[in-house]
Amino acid sequence: MKLYLIRHGESLGNLQGKIQGTMDFPLSELGKQQVDLISSYCENINLDSLYSSDLERAHATATAIGESTGLPVQAWDQIREVHLGPLQGLTRAEIKEQYPETVKNSIITSGIKGTETIDELTLRCKTVLEQLQEQHSSDSVALVSHGGFISIFLMYVLVGERWPDFHRPFVIGNTSVTLLEWMDEKEQPYLHYTNRTAHLDTLEAEQHAKKGVL
């Protein structure tokens, strides 16, 4: 199985510097341009299936990819962004001021009441991986998701349930592409590349690949 992990285009929440979590924000004007470019890029990938988070910023991205590839978009709530409860809608500065315990800990694994737990996230990753391997063992599949979930899923694939014990080193920019491949479903996957954004060169992608903005 080849698995392409694609982050959504820039949203208005990204533009405003807000931690979105499961809040819904539409694409920004830049995000729409990014989506046009990732859609063209995906025309050259032989995809068999296309899944998307059910949140608007991801689903709009996937819809454009579906139009360019001729694939139906299958909405999947299991690959939506991490739910961050009371942190959602705040900027990082506001979170730091109101929840000082997040200064030394990732907001994703902070354990603040109302946020998605590590156990819940682990179960989501396990469910996604098992279902993909069961249904698409010989296919090329694209998941259009979110920066937070993609980075956690990558860690889960690489180290399993111990993922919270490790630093997540991945930068996942808007409409970036990450490719994993399982040569055999019983073997560990190969990570071909992460955060590929060459399709955004005309938009000066590096200026817009904001680290850690969910």
Rank of each mutant, 00 (worst) to 15 (best):
M1V: 14
L3S: 03
Y4K: 07
I6T: 11
I6R: 14
H8R: 12
G9A: 14
L12F: 09
G13Q: 14
G13L: 11
G17F: 13
G17H: 09
Q20A: 10
G21N: 04
T22E: 11
T22P: 00
M23A: 05
M23S: 07
P26H: 03
L27I: 01
S28G: 04
E29A: 00
L30F: 00
G31E: 00
G31W: 00
G31V: 01
K32E: 05
Q33W: 00
Q34S: 02
V35H: 01
V35F: 02
S39C: 13
S39F: 06
S40N: 14
C42M: 15
C42T: 15
E43P: 04
N46Q: 14
L47D: 06
L47P: 11
S49N: 07
S49I: 02
Y51N: 05
E56Q: 14
R57W: 09
R57I: 04
A58W: 05
A60C: 02
G66H: 10
S68V: 12
T69E: 06
T69R: 12
P72I: 13
A75K: 12
I79A: 07
R80M: 08
V82T: 14
G85C: 09
P86E: 07
L87D: 09
L87H: 08
Q88H: 03
Q88Y: 04
T91C: 06
T91Q: 04
T91V: 01
R92N: 08
I95L: 09
I95Y: 04
K96N: 09
Q98S: 11
T102K: 11
K104F: 10
K104P: 00
I107K: 05
I108A: 03
G111E: 06
I112F: 07
K113L: 08
G114D: 02
T115K: 08
I118S: 05
I118V: 15
L121F: 08
T122M: 01
T122K: 03
R124T: 01
K126V: 01
V128T: 02
Q131R: 07
L132N: 02
S137D: 13
S138E: 15
D139E: 13
S140Y: 10
S140N: 15
V141H: 10
L143A: 11
S145P: 12
G147N: 15
G147K: 12
G147M: 11
G148K: 07
I150G: 14
L154A: 01
V157T: 09
L158S: 01
L158N: 04
L158G: 00
G160L: 02
R162S: 05
D165H: 01
F166P: 01
F166C: 02
H167C: 00
R168E: 01
R168N: 14
P169F: 01
V171G: 04
V171S: 10
N174L: 10
V177K: 11
T178K: 09
L179Q: 15
L180S: 10
E181Q: 15
E181D: 13
E181M: 13
W182S: 13
M183P: 10
D184H: 15
E185G: 03
K186G: 06
K186M: 08
E187I: 05
Q188R: 09
Q188T: 09
L191Q: 06
N195L: 04
T197D: 07
H199T: 12
D201N: 15
T202W: 01
L203H: 03
E204W: 01
A205I: 06
A205E: 05
K211H: 06
K211Q: 05
G212M: 04
V213M: 08
V213I: 14
L214Q: 08
